[in-house]
Design a protein around this nucleic acid. Sequence first.
DNA 1: TATCTGTCGATACACTGTATCACCGCTGAA
DNA 2: TTCAGCGGTGATACAGTGTATCGACAGATA
Lengths: 227, 227
Amino acid sequence: MLVWERPEPPDRPTPAPLSRERIVHAAIRLADADGLEAVSLRKVAAELDAGPMRLYGYIATKEELLDLMVDAVHAEIHPAGTGWREVLQSLAETTRQAAHRHEWLADLLGGRPQLGPNTLATSEAVLAAMGDVDLNTVMPAVAAVNAYVTGAVRREITERRAERASGMSKRQWQATYGPYLERTFATGRFAALETLVRDGPHLDADQTFRAGLEFLLDGVEARISAR
Amino acid sequence: MLVWERPEPPDRPTPAPLSRERIVHAAIRLADADGLEAVSLRKVAAELDAGPMRLYGYIATKEELLDLMVDAVHAEIHPAGTGWREVLQSLAETTRQAAHRHEWLADLLGGRPQLGPNTLATSEAVLAAMGDVDLNTVMPAVAAVNAYVTGAVRREITERRAERASGMSKRQWQATYGPYLERTFATGRFAALETLVRDGPHLDADQTFRAGLEFLLDGVEARISAR
DNA sequence: TATCTGTCGATACACTGTATCACCGCTGAA
DNA sequence: TTCAGCGGTGATACAGTGTATCGACAGATA
């Protein structure tokens, strides 16, 4: 084909300037809006007017992007307070709140080693505020609170999603699972469970989270004051 | 093409008899061997000499298969003991052991509502053994233990994987992350973290898990004996 | 001005979950 | 006995995934 007929190459748009930060924020926007499974390298790249392969200059793998997202959220977590107990409580509460703002965090918490600067800074803030508590206690105490928060947040977000998926309300949720549970209880094999569901307290998510956290902190406190 | 030339349809092999149980066990075998990401409907089906679409007679979606897997593992979890404390402890320990046998469980724990028969039976066993403890305590206590176990197991398995990925030994792990941590600590911004890593106790996974669990149970015990 | 270099994105690959649908053997009815 | 219908099965297809490869271009260097 002669030059005269051949079209010129398309004006290639000046490539949008990219940075890890922009990439991560785009990914977080997507995840906030449509959940973690909406985060694909193609969509993130498209959000930034770039080709998918361009991202590989900034990250080596999708997992790394997820790591960066988790670390970015940790920048929002600022445990504060006076005394070790307030600080651990604050760590738990603020982490939980972050998960409310970014539900996908629940899918990622505890799933990968976290060594990013913001995550380390959060740990640092907590540890620095633990005062002169014995390191032999600090270590497992902080680990336990982190484990508890991970699990509690996961369950809470999972429940929230189940409710939402079954039609936006607690009533709807009961309508979905109620009959199944009725039939299951009717077998008589789950007596204790049945009385718990029927006669047990109906705690909301806040109360449940705080109650568990208090058990844990009470236990830590007993150990600390025992020495 | 004339009939004479046209080949007969291949002897279709008598389709292997299928069942939800066989499917779930095949999936678990795959996951045990190569991790959860090795579980694809195609591979599971191949394992059973079936086409992928055949599975959809037994499950509606891959997520349902994962739910079934989790429930199947709960059949291995038999919390036992006398008194609420022993039972909760046993719940935690046996769940953890199950996760050691099936590491992929860590990826799924807390990630979906669990209402399968085996899961319910586990809860039932726990609740039945809680004796006459006040329901207002039982509810959050069991929830807290479950949350703790979820988080602790996740972290433990995550660490185990990181070690394995970096070359099969704790020494290798240190060789991989050590230098990075050194450089990071060198900034001086993580003083407390640094002293913890340098001077803190080096607890193994068992100890960490049990220590956290004990904090939690001590807290529950304080509440129970306070009334 | 010519060459080198590093970056970008088009293309490709292997794979995913699942929708669709033609076909086949079976069952029940005429 | 024949035939219609039906349900289960798997081939095919589709849209999407993460990522390897590699040609081509822009800018830097000589």
